[in-house]
Each structure stands twice: as structure tokens, then as C-alpha cells.
Write a protein that binds this DNA or RNA. Structure first.
Lengths: 352, 352
DNA sequence: AAACGCATTGAGACCGGTCTCAATCTACGC
DNA sequence: GCGTAGATTGAGACCGGTCTCAATGCGTTT
């Protein structure tokens, strides 16, 4: 009867049950593990002994032999971010239905933390890994898992040069549509705001560090260019992490009449700053955003948003991963899910 | 050189490194595991071989021997709920700093799912478990972990009769204060709305299934009673899960002049319903709530809320758990963290 | 009773690391 | 050179389960 080092308490093993049931360890394991063959008499005896002794399986020992842990690792930027909480929930539900649990790690969108998370998960022999990559352009931290042939699926953003499955929302089309709404309302001075880090001011053709933001910017710029707006890239504001309020203030001072916020946190900060500046939405500045956060329907005015199928992104990523774990060797898939426009009251024609 | 069953790929073991470095398996393990003694020459040789062969540790094998997994299980109602996402983030940060990762499972506030989650976590030999219990009054699903002496800390709610550490917010005081604000504004017909399931209408002395809601109701009722309100229990509405809007409608029809929403989701539904009914906040109905959700500061009017220290609840729970894992045998602790009132514009005197 | 086929069972190896303790090595002091 | 003490090393057991295959048991047919 072994001793549990955490507290000296004993965990009952298959061997203990076997001895009590007067069968071999292998037979007891067959009964308790639910594989192989056992006579009804032996089975009853083993199960009675297991219940009597209080046997509980050790999943680690099982994994040691089978190589299967029934765990899936999931690495998100920050679980506190509603986007990741929802995607994680979607993934968790699909995983749970298939008999997997999730090991959760936050990367804070940093490559070092992401690489460390990958190592931890590989050491724990997870069956597969879901990642919202910290970087689209430098996926080096993800290569280890790929090289060790551990199934991996990326969600929300892709990683350039990595041949793995991906599940993202159609940010290009979503951004085009948001921009088009503003253009249709008569706006020409429309800004796009993101917090993403980028070395310089945005130029057409730049590849941004997050493909979801890159797609949004390209959709935005493309729609403006198609509408004949001169040099639309000058309306793109990146690196806003140090202060969305300041960026919004400068934009308003520059005569911007509409803002596309890359996510709901940015939109929230913009909303607050416009309120502070005494600028009315949408009379003075129209505001639209990605993601249908709760507040966007409760603010006055409600904000027109492009809602992502967040839950489904997580769920689909988990489905793909589980198929890979099961041995699916088909070519990699790149799923692009449609976004849904939610029109509210934050768009009006510019004041001119 | 073993074969990985997931894909036939080989993982390098300590034995492989030992052979390459011409030392025993035990010596190679000492170097790679960072324990015991090894000469500098041997150490260099082993590390070079490990790097050359691409050795990666197997955490499961280590746990088999040490009994320590460096994983903490966390069971929340629903990770998509901002409360749990934030608490989880708080826990994850403390855990990570102490060298632990989190295994996340959702209970959906169901005892069966919670019991299953406990079993999964125990099978995986997590070092400890954090739980937001599905039931305060029936903690049977949690007993297994306690009986098997696995460290456990409850957060957000307690479980009656379970001798484990707990971390909760001071909901009693928070509710008294919210109620007092409304009383001070002149309200006497104040309703408290919760979605919690309860067999009958609330009666003073009833023990509700979630201690956080129970505390809120008791604080609410207590404040009203102290203010001389006759039979305040009649203003408590439970079981609103099937339709906060209908509950709000009925309350308004009954001449209720103020509402205390037990959480921000309920407040949100009430806000929408009042808006739909054409009732102005706070002119017609004052509305206050627990939790400082984003939307409560962006709505018009902003909602006065009692903000919980959510992040800190998760973080403190993880700190207590890590102490227990480390062998702390002190009597159980019951931490009650203060809430913070955030006053906005949702309170006005009743119309009379 | 013997032969055959199938089901059941047990012995032993194995997963990949940690731990214990005796054997061996090394450095130092006399 | 010898003895001693401490450092280093290796052999083997062990964690708790799964897997393989030969041995055994059982039922049926000839």
C-alpha cells in the first residue's frame, strides 16, 4: 500500500485490489481499466474489492503506458479578455464532450511566455495544443510543438510559415463592411485604431504581428482606397497600447469624423474619451468596432459592431484538433468564419 | 529509443542520454533533473548529449515518482462569465509565479459536473484544487477530494460543513450598503433579484444554495428590516433564471421603485427590460448591482455598483492553496475581502 | 477419452523518471 | 604511502498502470 507524498495518505492501487480479489494484477487491471476479457465472477470480485478498498485510477500511470493523456493545452493571450474566455468556453465544451480536459496557460501576447507554455504542455504530454499565437510574423515559439509532431491548431490568428490548421474570423470582409457603412454615410476621414505594436507608421503592404489585426487593417484600407480616398494608410493608428485616449484626442483634433476600433476594449476607451471631450456619438464622431461586447448594446448610443463568432472559433479549433489527435493526416485546413454585423446608433453623416 | 503512440515519433529519454554520455541512467537523471551531485565533466557531457539528441523531460514520469504534478485544478461555473474569467486570471498569475499551471474545468453550477470534474482532477494527481462550489448547502460532490486529503480552497462561495479554506467577498456588508443607499434616497419598496434556484419564495432564515447570494439577501433584508420596512423578505425575488425581464415587469407593476440586482448579468437584463418598458433609470426606477462590469460605466445612466475584488479573490485562493500544498497544517482560514462601492447615476428618490 | 478451439488468466516487461545505498573515486592530512 | 572523509557514481527497486504472449481452463465435437 503506497504512500502519497503530499500527506502520507495512501492511494489504493490495482495491485492492492488484485490481492484482495485473489487475482493477478493484470486481471484486476483489465477489469478496472475496462479492457480485455474477464469472467463475470472475477469481474464481480474485483469490482467489489475496488469499492471496498476505495480504489481510484491514476491517470498519469495510464498515460505513461498509453502515451495518451486526454488533456488538451490551450494558450490564450489573457483569459480575462472576454474574447478568450468565450473561445475557451467553446473549446472546453467540445473537448469535454470528447473526453478531454483543458490545461490553460496565459501568454500575455509575449513570445517568451508562449514558448514556456508550449514546453510545459509538451512535458505534460498533452494530446494536442490550441494556441492564439502571440505573433503572426515570428512563430518560432510554436515550432517546437510542430517539430515534435504534437497536433496543434491556431485560432483567431495565423502564424506565417507554419503548416498547421487554423480557425479565424473573416476580419478582412468585416473591416471592409464596417468601413463601407461609414463611407456610405458620407465619411471620408475615417480612422482605424489598434493597440498592436508595430515599428513604424502603417504603410500599405506592411505585415502586422497579428493576422487578425492585419486583415482588419487591410480590409479597412482597401475599402477606403476603393472609394477613392487618397492615401488611406495615413488614417491607420497602431501602437495605441500606451493610450487610446491620447490617440483619440489627436484624431479628433485632426478632424477625423469616424473611428473604427479594432476591438471592444479600444472602442470602450474611445467612447469614454469622446464623452470626456464632449464630442457626441454619432453627431460629432461616428464610432464602430469589432466584437459585440455587452456594453456596446447598453451604452447611449449603442455601438454598431462586427460580431465575431467567438464561441464557434474555439469550438471549431477544438474539433479540428481532436481530429488530428485521432490520426487525421489530411492537408491542413484554414477555416474562416463569417462575422455578423450588428447595427446600432453610432453612425451618422459627418458634420461637414 | 521509445515510440510515441500519437505519431510514431520518438521522444528521447534519460536512458538514451545516459548511453550517449557513457554514464548511468541515474547520473544522467541527476544532471538533467537538477538534483543530487555530478562532477563538472560528467555534467557537461550529459548536457551536451541531451542537447545533441533533443531531450525533453517527461513531467508525467516525474510525477509518478515524486507524487507532485505542479498542476492545480480550478473548477468554475462558466469560464465565459467575466467573474470567473477574472478570478481565474488572478489564480493563474499566482500559480504561475509559484511554478504551477492550471487545469480548467467548467461545472455549469451543476453538482454532477462538479463531482466529475473533481474525479478527473484527482485522477490526474493535481497538487490541489480551487473550486467555486456549485452548492453551498450540499457539498457532497466536494467530499471526495477532502477525504483523499487533497488540498482544496473554495472561492466566491463557501460549502456548509466542509472544513476547508475559503475566500469570499463581504457580500453581507456590500448588500447592506447598497440597500442603505436606496433607503437613504427615500426608497421603501426595494426589490432584490437573483437567478438562484430555491424551492419556495424566500423566507427570513432560509439558507440559499450559494453563500454569496445568501449573504447578499441577508444583508439586503437586514438593512430593510433595520430601517423599519415591514416584512422585507417579500421583496426578494429568486429563481429568476427563467426570465429576469418577466420578474422586472412584475416588480414594476407592483410599484417597486428600486432594484438590487444580484449580479451584473441580472442588472443588464433589468436595464434592458426597463428601457423596453419605457421606465427611466433612475427617475422611475433606481437600479443598483453587484460587480463593476464594463457596461455599468458606459450605459446612460451609469449604474451604481458594488465592485468585488474578483482578481484578488482568485489570487488569494491560489495563495492559500499553494500554502496547503507546501504542507501548511494550520487551521482553516476564511478570508472575507471588502467590496468597493462605485457610485454612478442610477439612484434617485422615488416618485412617490 | 482425446482433440480442438476459444476464453481467461498470470508472468513479466515496459513506460521514463526518482530514490536509496553500497561501491568507488578523489582530495587532503599525517 | 596510508588512512579518512566527503563527493561521485551505478545498480536496482519503485511509482501504477498497460500490453504481450504463453499457459491454463473450459466447452464442444469426434
Amino acid at each position: 500500500m503506497p504512500v502519497d507524498p503530499l500527506n502520507g495518505r495512501k492511494e489504493v492501487t490495482v495491485s492492492d485490489v488484485a490481492a484482495a480479489a485473489k487475482v493477478s494484477k493484470a486481471t484486476a487491471a483489465r477489469v478496472l481499466g475496462g479492457y480485455g476479457a474477464a469472467s463475470e465472477a472475477v469481474r464481480d470480485r474485483v469490482q467489489a474489492a475496488a469499492e471496498q478498498l476505495g480504489y481510484h485510477p491514476n491517470a498519469l500511470a495510464k498515460t505513461m503506458t498509453t502515451g495518451r493523456s486526454n488533456s488538451i493545452g490551450i494558450i490564450v493571450g489573457d483569459i480575462e479578455n472576454p474574447f478568450f474566455a468565450q473561445a475557451t468556453r467553446g473549446a472546453a465544451d467540445v473537448a469535454k464532450a470528447a473526453g478531454y480536459d483543458l490545461i490553460l496557460l496565459n501568454s500575455d501576447e509575449h513570445a517568451v511566455a508562449e514558448e514556456n507554455a508550449i514546453s510545459v504542455l509538451l512535458a505534460k504530454r498533452v494530446d494536442g495544443i490550441l494556441v492564439a499565437p502571440a505573433s503572426t510574423t515570428d512563430p518560432s515559439s510554436l515550432r517546437e510543438a510542430v517539430e515534435r509532431a504534437r497536433p496543434m491548431v491556431l485560432f483567431d490568428r495565423v502564424a506565417d510559415g507554419l503548416d498547421v490548421d487554423t480557425v479565424v474570423a473573416d476580419n478582412l470582409a468585416g473591416a471592409r463592411r464596417l468601413a463601407q457603412l461609414l463611407l456610405d454615410a458620407g465619411h471620408r476621414r475615417i480612422a482605424f485604431v489598434s493597440t498592436i505594436a508595430h515599428a513604424d507608421e502603417y504603410r500599405v503592404g506592411d505585415r502586422l504581428g497579428s493576422s487578425s489585426v492585419d486583415d482588419r487593417v487591410r480590409g479597412f484600407v482597401g475599402a477606403l482606397a476603393d472609394a477613392g480616398v487618397d492615401d488611406p494608410a495615413r488614417f491607420v493608428r497602431l501602437n495605441a497600447r500606451d493610450g487610446v485616449p491620447a490617440v483619440v484626442r489627436a484624431l479628433v483634433d485632426d478632424g477625423i469624423t469616424a473611428i473604427v476600433a479594432s476591438d471592444s476594449l479600444i472602442a470602450q476607451a474611445a467612447f469614454r474619451e469622446l464623452r470626456t471631450l464632449g464630442r457626441r456619438i454619432p453627431d460629432d464622431v461616428s464610432l464602430v468596432a469589432f466584437d459585440d461586447a455587452d456594453w456596446t448594446s447598453l451604452s447611449a448610443p449603442g455601438i454598431t459592431v462586427m460580431a465575431q463568432p467567438i464561441h464557434e472559433i474555439g469550438a471549431e479549433a477544438a474539433r479540428l484538433l481532436i481530429r488530428r489527435i485521432a490520426g487525421d493526416g489530411a492537408p491542413t485546413e484554414h477555416v474562416v468564419l463569417a462575422q455578423r454585423l450588428v447595427e446600432r446608433e453610432s453612425i451618422a453623416p459627418p458634420r461637414s
